[in-house]
């Protein structure tokens, strides 16, 4: 049986080089590859293009890579909540490409599924359309969007096995299964790593074929960005 287990985050990120394109799963701080990001922030790697729905906050998530100026370009749908990000973007140090969230998800899914491009109605008639090809289907206008792939994809799941099969929890699933498919080398970090055969095969979300390396994260801070409660 194939064993994809690596010892730790440092081993998991080996091979990441300057100027590579990396994908990061997660929505806000929910379901982000905390341990992999921390390990990357300790390496002198620069010029990265990062594809992630959001860009973390100043001192957590991708904010750690931004602070050390390791990111050259961000491809995201929403980048609020990060003052350092805004500063680098407005000063021109950081290149930013904003794309609609559903388009981002589908571009990742397509990249992993062997579909080079697709037409979507999202962004038609807006700045996002730019000089993209427009076609009419059933009297409605759509724009052409291309698939996305990455040198490495970093995803985070709740449970995983040594074959790379993954199960996510709650809304921490989000972009993780899609980016797992689109990475040429996908690194999965999990809260619980179990031997192959121990996960219920009816409940696996990401089949291990999409994962090349897996490790159990040393520690999960799992920060809450916007704690909101119902008063008793």
């Amino acid at each position: 049986m194939i064993n994809k287990t690596v010892a730790n985050a440092e081993e998991a990120i080996s091979g990441v080089k300057n100027n590579m394109t990396l994908m990061f799963g997660g929505f806000g701080l929910c379901g982000i590859a905390e341990n992999s990001i921390k390990a990357l922030s300790k390496k002198p790697i620069k010029g990265l293009t990062c594809i992630s729905n959001n860009a973390g906050i100043d001192d957590f998530g991708l904010g750690l890579l931004l602070k050390k100026r390791q990111i050259k370009k961000m491809i995201s749908s929403y980048v609020g909540e990060n003052a350092e990000f805004e500063r680098q973007m407005l000063s021109g140090e950081l290149d930013v490409e904003l794309i609609p969230q559903g388009t981002l998800a589908e571009r990742c899914r397509s990249g992993g599924a062997g579909i080079p491009a697709f037409f979507t109605p999202a962004g038609y008639g807006t700045e996002v359309q730019g000089d993209k090809e427009v076609r009419v289907f059933n009297k409605k206008k759509y724009i052409l969007e291309y698939a996305l792939n990455a040198d490495f994809a970093f995803v985070k799941a709740w449970k995983g096995d040594t074959l790379g099969n993954l199960i996510y929890k709650g809304t921490a699933r989000n972009f993780n299964p899609l980016m797992a498919m689109a990475g040429r080398l996908t690194v999965a970090e999990v809260e619980h790593l179990v031997p192959a055969g121990e996960l219920n095969l009816n409940q696996i979300h990401t089949p291990g074929i999409f994962v090349q390396r897996i490790f159990q994260g040393e520690f999960y801070e799992k920060r809450i960005e916007n704690k909101t409660i119902t008063k008793a």
């Binding site: 809304t171 921490a172 799992k222 409660i229 119902t230 008793a232």
Partner: peptide, 17 residues
């Protein structure tokens, strides 16, 4: 959620628990 019952893995699009 009620105080103490919030789950970092369960949020909405506004990142609220």
């Amino acid at each position: 959620p009620k105080e103490g019952k919030e789950d970092a893995d369960l949020i909405n699009a506004g990142k609220q628990t």
